[in-house]
Design a protein around this nucleic acid. Structure first.
Length: 443
RNA sequence: GUGGUUGUAGCUCAGUAGGUUAGAGCGCCUGAUUGUGGUUCAGGAGGUCGUGGGUUCGAGACCCAUCUUCCACCCCA
């Protein structure tokens, strides 16, 4: 059997972990600056906690975990066992639903509004593609217990500040589910909102004709199609699109509310790289108010983040009237974008600064003692544990990206010094312990 | 879940209309060089050709299944 990682998963080498830590560090810092506290939840939840929260498509992509022991014993008809009969747990699909579960479970203790951030892997049984994996990290910030639109403004600024710190130019696209509901309402297709939004969401990809023909195949009649057509135009500016919607949706209470919400956010969001996009729909069906999506400007990649407001999420777990709004960063895609643009810092080094050579069994204790003392000084030092040819030890240091080599042999031992050699420059010097420490500390 | 694509040495890849012991470059190991590498030279190790069936006198090449890679759809970070 050839060893390999499971489909859609990856190993992370030291270098890749360093990149991930760099991005997560910036995100953590930003989250905390904005007043969010960390939370971690289990890798898997009870199946019923997750099922039905992500739409029909989402249910299909949830990784289910077989019951332990004789997992067939609950199946009424073993030959036709249903997933829920032989599996009772599932890997988390996102961080939002486990968060909602946590909020409801601890409703009594939490001070509202409750703000949390969470950075953990999630799993989806999807087919892999560019920037798309079956195990990937999400980094979320959510707040529950406040209907204030200032939360939306704040989250947009959080996006702005985080991506600025990451040096990744992005565009935040903003829309509101209520606007979409309003459009459907005034067009007489309020009962088929989902079909409409799913098709509309593809406008930038398949064009107006593509959207129309998809709607047609879903059973929309010509009259309805022409009623919906105004939603597929492009606008000069955000204010122009809002002006248009105010007239078009005047007869729809929900639509007008959506327009007012958009214009409030727009008014207070200042210089953020924001664009109103009434074709933005997003699939997750728990969103009820504002929805947003972030795309990198110079990289061909799916979205690097998304989020929105959900009024009923905790309602599913029995806690009514608790509105929430949150955003998500796609860590893996962000790293891919930064790599493509060369925006990752070069000093992500994790390697030791020096490798102490072992020349012979007799020299080893003295050489090791140098490593021991340097480590007590807090220096990252590696000790070569075998007696080996110098060529081999040099090659090892080279391959690991270790800049300095320390050689302590018989003559150095007698002098109480060590040779410090810089691999790239090739220069070498016999130094005392304190001089050597000072040299490495300033590297 | 659907459609296409990929899989040969540690890595990148050759392998012609099915025909003896499957090749190259890089890397790796050993030596020239018993305390100073990166160059050079000489030698060497390493492959159940993704896996399982099938066709054939004969399969790395052809057929089927399955897994995997990448891409697209669906959907999404």
């Amino acid at each position: 059997m050839k060893p390999r990682v499971a489909k859609g998963t990856r190993d992370f080498s030291a270098h890749e972990v360093a990149k991930r830590n760099y991005v997560m560090g910036i995100l953590r810092e930003t989250f905390e600056v904005f007043g969010y506290s960390p939370l971690e939840t289990p890798s898997f939840e009870n199946l019923e906690t997750l099922m039905g929260k992500y739409g029909e498509e989402g249910d299909r992509l949830i990784f289910k975990i077989l019951r332990s022991g004789d997992f067939m014993r609950h199946a009424a008809i073993p030959a036709e066992a249903k997933g829920s009969e032989i599996a009772d747990k599932a890997l988390r699909y996102d961080l939002t639903v486990p968060f909602a579960r946590y909020v409801v479970q601890n409703a009594g203790q939490l001070a509202l509004p409750f703000k949390r951030y969470q950075m953990q892997p999630v799993w989806r049984a999807d087919n892999p593609q560019k920037g798309r994996f079956r195990e990937f990290y999400q980094c979320d910030a959510d707040v529950v217990g406040s209907r204030s639109l200032w939360q939306e403004v704040e989250l947009i600024h959080l996006y702005q500040q985080a991506f600025q710190a990451l040096k990744l130019p992005v565009t935040i696209r903003l829309n509101n589910r209520k606007v979409l509901a309003g459009i459907a309402e005034v067009s007489g297709v309020g009962d088929r909102l989902v079909d409409f939004t799913v098709a509309l969401d593809k406008l930038d990809k398949i064009g107006k004709d593509g959207v129309l023909s998809e709607l047609q195949s879903k059973g929309f009649n010509p009259h309805e199609l022409s009623a919906l057509e105004p939603s597929m135009q492009s606008f000069q500016s955000a204010s122009a699109s809002l002006d248009f919607l105010r007239i078009w949706l005047a007869d729809s209470a929900v639509g007008m509310q959506g327009v007012e919400e958009l214009s409030f956010v727009l008014k207070h969001v200042g210089s953020a790289p924001l664009s109103i996009d009434i074709t933005l729909a997003r699939g997750l069906n728990y969103y009820t108010g504002c929805i947003m999506e972030v795309t990198a400007n110079q990289v061909q990649m799916g979205s690097v983040g998304g989020g929105g407001r959900y009024d009923d999420l905790t309602g599913i777990f029995g806690l009514k009237d608790t509105s929430g709004v949150g955003i998500s960063f796609g860590l893996d895609r962000i790293i891919l974008c930064l790599e493509e643009l060369g925006r990752l810092p070069e000093t992500l080094g994790d390697a030791p600064v020096a490798l102490v050579f072992t020349l012979s069994e007799a020299d080893a204790p003295y050489a090791y003692d140098w490593a021991y003392r340097l480590r007590k000084e807090g220096l990252r030092v590696e000790f070569y544990p075998e007696v080996a040819k110098l060529k081999k030890q040099f090659d090892y240091a080279e391959k690991r990206g270790i800049p300095y080599v320390i050689i302590v042999g018989e003559s150095e031992r007698e002098a109480g010094l060590a040779q410090l050699k810089h691999l790239e420059l090739g220069d070498q010097e016999a130094l005392s312990f304190s001089d050597l420490t000072a040299r490495l500390a300033t590297y």
